[in-house]
């Protein structure tokens, strides 16, 4: 992969294929191969342009697949178990989602479901769909381009990690009046968050786009 700069003002004979513009500040750069393990930064705003890693694609696919499996466990296994005054209550993530389903607050249950389960799951599936075929050397899947754009657009809206912090706060809040035990689903969720964060650091957006383009043509 590539990058370095073109800044001599001779725009007439610039080869568009050999150029890349920083998505953050619009500065033009020449494309030069970026060695694996190095980071190419924009010379103007210093944001990362490309950071290719060795066998990143395999790692991302593996991590995304594990995260998707953990997601199933996190949703359906018991999440928290609460006991107070002789009563006991076991909740799964599904219960947390449907907690809002009474009356006016019904739409909020949809939003919570989307933010902590549906959107992260769609995003993981889209990444698998885009990178899976490329990992085993096939041509990219037919709708790989819109799928990867969807995955990128969903990034700020997948809030699984925020949910985990919310759980921690909620545990402190009820700690005084009841006994709480965390179930297997809670640990699945924590693992899911760590794996997703790892996967996102491995994934270099511009490198994926470049690879998608090259593989689609060949």
């Amino acid at each position: 992969m590539q990058v370095a700069l073109a800044d001599d003002g001779q725009t007439e004979h610039l080869d568009l294929e050999g150029l890349i513009a920083c998505p953050v500040c619009d500065a033009l750069h020449n494309l030069h191969p970026v060695p694996v393990g190095e980071i190419a930064r924009c010379h103007r705003c210093h944001s990362t342009l490309m950071a290719p890693r060795a066998s990143a694609m395999t790692q991302i696919v593996m991590l995304a697949a594990s995260a998707l499996i953990l997601m199933v466990a996190a949703v359906f296994f018991p999440f928290l178990d609460l006991s107070a005054a002789g009563f006991s209550q076991e909740s799964s993530v599904i219960d947390a989602i449907t907690a809002f389903s009474d009356g006016l607050l019904f739409p909020l249950s949809f939003a919570v479901a989307a933010l902590i389960v549906v959107l992260p799951a769609i995003r993981l599936a889209a990444i698998l769909y885009v990178l899976g075929p490329m990992m085993i050397g096939e041509r990219p899947a037919r709708h790989a381009i819109p799928a990867f754009r969807l995955a990128e657009a969903l990034k700020p809206w997948s809030m699984a990690e925020i949910f985990v912090v919310g759980v921690a706060v909620a545990l402190v809040k009820i700690g005084g009046m009841a006994q709480v035990h965390v179930g297997p689903a809670f640990w699945a969720f924590v693992a899911l968050v760590v794996i997703t964060a790892l996967k996102d650091t491995f994934m270099c957006r511009l490198t994926v786009w470049k690879t998608l383009e090259e593989r689609s043509q060949s």
Binding site: Q89, V169, A170
Partner: peptide, 17 residues
Amino acid sequence: RWSMIDVFVVAILSALV
């Protein structure tokens, strides 16, 4: 996005308690 914490806290408490 981290502002959503409180909304999730409310969701969890309502489900649990």
